[in-house]
């Protein structure tokens, strides 16, 4: 097992309450997410999302793959695991260059917002270590930590974002009834609760056994579509 004596101290018990999590998870949090569809644009074009039912299936698949991976990384970062090790773990779990680029870009944008909203030495250190941006879930976890939130909160924020983005994008792309799109998110809530628990447990395990034990669930179709989407000459969303 790796020597962890150099890792940051374990996170203090979360000092912030649910209101802080609402601020972080708000879709209007200015961290660049509005320009990304989480793969929804490619799925709409391919005819895989045509209506609310299609959106729900898409989001469920995304939650259990990319969502869980992001949530576990975020929870581990919030728990105080070494951000550089987690960033490498995120790289290993993001095989598609287009998605790596998008994740680092979004990480950089989130870090900018986080440093203005919850200034903390840990965030300054992360910015210095990753001037071109660390992976977004890692930044999200450290942001949660700086805000006084715990690993489970970070997991929730990552999971909610992983489906909130595609839902909003689908409303814009398909003209989908916004009430139906929000009802999809509400139906997914029990899955979010379940996955937040799993992501948090994985983060605790990674603290003892290293980032290698974090979930690595992949979604090949999301990956392939993201790679193709990045080549489109005309598109509404950056990813």
């Amino acid at each position: 097992m790796t020597d962890r004596t150099t890792s940051p101290a374990p996170a203090p018990s979360p000092a912030a309450g649910p209101a802080t999590l609402l601020v972080l998870a708000d879709g209007r949090f200015p961290a660049g997410g509005h320009a990304h569809s989480g793969g929804a644009e490619a799925a709409v074009k391919a005819g895989r999302i045509r209506d609310a039912a299609g959106l729900e299936e898409f989001c469920r698949g995304r939650l259990h793959t990319a969502g869980l991976v992001a949530a576990a990384l975020a929870a581990a970062a919030a728990l105080g695991l070494d951000p550089a090790e987690l960033d490498a773990a995120a790289d290993a779990r993001t095989p598609v260059p287009a998605l790596r680029t998008a994740s680092r870009k979004l990480g950089r944008q989130l870090l900018r917002a986080a440093r203005a909203v919850w200034p903390a030495p840990g965030l300054d250190a992360l910015a210095a270590a990753f001037p071109r941006g660390a992976h977004q879930p890692v930044v999200l976890g450290l942001t949660a930590r700086a805000a006084g939130l715990g690993p489970r909160d970070a997991a929730y924020a990552a999971l909610y974002e992983s489906v909130g983005g595609p839902a909003t994008a689908t409303v814009r792309l398909l003209g989908l009834d916004p009430f139906e799109a929000t009802a999809v998110l509400a139906r997914l809530a029990p899955a979010l609760d379940d996955l937040a628990g799993r992501a948090t447990a994985a983060a605790h395990r990674a603290r003892d056994e290293g980032a290698g034990v974090l979930p690595a669930a992949s979604a090949p179709l999301l990956d392939i579509a993201a790679h193709q989407h990045a080549q489109w000459p005309v598109r509404l969303f950056a990813s």
């Binding site: 200015p30 961290a31 509005h34 870009k105 950089r108």
Partner: peptide, 9 residues
Amino acid sequence: RDDISANLE
């Protein structure tokens, strides 16, 4: 206006 992060970058 609402989320200027990409432009600032």
